[in-house]
Write a protein that binds this DNA or RNA. Sequence first.
DNA 1: TGCAGACATCGACGAGCGTCGATGTGCTTT
DNA 2: AAAGCACATCGACGCTCGTCGATGTCTGCA
Lengths: 122, 122
Amino acid sequence: MSTAEEMTMSEPGLACCTPLTGTPMSAAQAEQVAPLLKALADPVRLRLVSLIAASAGGEACVCDLNDAFDLTQATISHHLKVLHSAGLLDRDKRGVWVYYAVRPGALAAVANLFDTAVLTPA
Amino acid sequence: MSTAEEMTMSEPGLACCTPLTGTPMSAAQAEQVAPLLKALADPVRLRLVSLIAASAGGEACVCDLNDAFDLTQATISHHLKVLHSAGLLDRDKRGVWVYYAVRPGALAAVANLFDTAVLTPA
DNA sequence: TGCAGACATCGACGAGCGTCGATGTGCTTT
DNA sequence: AAAGCACATCGACGCTCGTCGATGTCTGCA
């Protein structure tokens, strides 16, 4: 899987070289964060997370979420599985119904990434 | 685009209904934010933004970025175009070299989305 | 015991994405 | 004017993704 083994970064004497002032994100760190963002980078999944977070108790059952979209139940179930696999949603089965809840701190971690991490220049 | 006309699946008197306490994200808003996240949801692009932000002056030229990856120059150019088209990067051509800079406030806007928006339950 | 509802899984299809080599464009130097 | 460099663009390839209909699994009720 891991293909890269990069070194050669700087050649002295070139005019276009921009020195690094901060510490950029490592390749391993990027490969770890990207799936989180990829899980959120979909209009339907974004609305799903929003709907769940805006529900009472921070949780919602699938039947409610299903009615909020013009999509098949199979598709909604797929999107919920993606969000759950990414660690963004918690799954709780109660009887016939399944309740999904936003995992505490999951979204805050994403926000923190763009707030205090190496991504923000100033 | 819109394929289905959904049938009303809701029957009154069901136990699984979860009332909304907050205001969830609208479909239009989700369609507007998703491309931003989709542009960031790639390990290479994440590192590109990080490298640019960590560079002196918050900008870096393509030749430097190109050396940081084991990828073709065409691929790096493609990723930079994606980030630029998404409004995350500013492009500035100086002579032969092209400098990319993180658009001010772009990442803060994403962070703000997960901080104060309807996505955070508590 | 059997049936109906809620949700997950499966296989399939079209569309989009990441990557590449090759080529084009524009600037600089000789 | 010609050559060389930096970067963008162009097809093309394989792979992944979003969506669907069909089917499977489990629960609760008659």
